[in-house]
């Protein structure tokens, strides 16, 4: 159920992001979603790509520090309050959301968000009860 997200440690210096994106381009890896968290000195780039294993291999070879994290991709209604409902549900169940970001692609009338949670399985069950479906990893990579 969970989707593999690749996180990359990036120092804030010119050319690093260009280098990284070129490596992915050369290997014909398509970026499905991304988000950046940053401080003054460095940032963490989080990526969801169509070929996570290949991307990890290439980035490691190029000397990037990376780590793989399991995240949840969730289809939510594309309307005001759609995300609020989900976060409220999780919050009430005591499930902490580390971070969340939006997906580039869309599925029918719904939006897709990426959630980083400690308790993925518990969240999936809870959300399912409320009619919210996690998007299977294969679908995400194939989108």
């Amino acid at each position: 159920m969970a989707v593999t997200q690749i996180s990359v440690f990036l120092e804030n210096k010119s050319g690093r992001l260009a280098e990284l994106t070129e490596i992915l381009a050369e290997a014909s890896i398509n970026i499905r979603a991304l988000s950046v968290a940053e401080t003054v000195d460095y940032g963490v780039l989080r990526l969801i790509v169509d070929k996570p294993d290949l991307a990890c291999e290439r980035l490691r070879q190029a000397g990037f520090t990376i780590t793989e994290t399991q995240v949840l991709a969730l289809e939510i209604p594309d309307r005001p309050g759609g995300l609020a409902d989900v976060i409220r549900l999780l919050s009430n169940a005591g499930i902490n959301v580390e971070y969340v970001y939006a997906f580039v692609g869309k599925a029918k009338d719904n939006a897709i968000v990426v959630l980083r949670l400690e308790e993925i399985d518990q969240a999936v069950k809870l959300l399912k009860k409320h009619g919210l479906e996690a998007v299977p990893a294969e679908n995400i990579y194939r989108m």
């Binding site: 997200q5 996180s7 968290a37 401080t39 963490v44 490691r60 520090t65 990376i66 971070y99 980083r116």
Partner: peptide, 15 residues
């Protein structure tokens, strides 16, 4: 230097 064993995807852990 941040090596793979200490790198965390969560900013608060790095901080």
């Amino acid at each position: 230097e941040v090596s793979a064993n200490i790198f965390s995807d969560e900013m608060r852990k790095l901080e």
